[in-house]
Design a protein around this nucleic acid. Sequence first.
DNA 1: TTCTTGTCGATGCAACCGCATGGGATTTTC
DNA 2: GAAAATCCCATGCGGTTGCATCGACAAGAA
Lengths: 146, 146
Amino acid sequence: MAMPAATTLLAWTRLLRAADLASQHCAASLRSLGLPPPEWYDVLLAIERSGAQRPRDLQVALGTEQYALSRLVDRMVRAGLLNRVPCPDDARGHTLHLTIEGRAMRAAMWPVYAQAIEAAFGSRVEEEDRVALARLLAPLAKPISA
Amino acid sequence: MAMPAATTLLAWTRLLRAADLASQHCAASLRSLGLPPPEWYDVLLAIERSGAQRPRDLQVALGTEQYALSRLVDRMVRAGLLNRVPCPDDARGHTLHLTIEGRAMRAAMWPVYAQAIEAAFGSRVEEEDRVALARLLAPLAKPISA
DNA sequence: TTCTTGTCGATGCAACCGCATGGGATTTTC
DNA sequence: GAAAATCCCATGCGGTTGCATCGACAAGAA
């Protein structure tokens, strides 16, 4: 296959750098206040929104690896934020529920996370450009087919 | 601080997802052929271009953490791709040089890496949109000031 | 010079990730 | 309805990361 076009390489490096810088900033921001990392928030939010989720569904929704999610849930259960409840329909699995502390943690994390997103991303791009970015990135945010 | 605008959140999630999917694809592509991960390529390329580099300069250029680069270089030296040469000007540090194998490895990695970038990114966005993306991402690829 | 401060790079330790695999339950196939 | 294939989730192991810190040199101040 041919070498990627120059514009491809430029956009490529900037995409990776931008995502890395921004996510690092968020993680650092949460950590500096003694809060868990961003993935925890995503899990807490997803479960809070749906009431309960099977690990498999979460895995798909969040785009994580199966083992990564398994261990992430482990840690969150150990931290008292989540409960694993045996699943009546399917004895292989279980459903995940928020504890009171889990709900509180999500609420506590949001302002910090939100502010970090704003600082690392929102405030650095004009509204109009954010719209354009969302549109341009849409195809790239879909699973790679080939 | 206020909650980020809806467009911010949408663009944000897509940015992270897009970068993650694409870089995963590249890493997997190289690994499936028994080649080292993308970071190794970046290091090899940077050194090949400049002839030699101090770790500190590489760290800045690649945007990695100091300890991460230190250990990455370790592995690459152990793999026989790099040499650490004492630095005459500054006895604290050293300069990094490619070995013959290092040069060969960079050359071997490129077609694979290039094709992966093309598959994960280039071929999924029109030329015109790549230009737009590069422009929109430019401010985000700069270090976060605040 | 001597003392303080700053920079370069390495590393111990604990947490985390990726790969491969395993055990158990379910669905499919014949 | 038994065997085969598939799916759900966990985990052992080795490699990697992040944090904090350290040792060594360099540069600036007194």
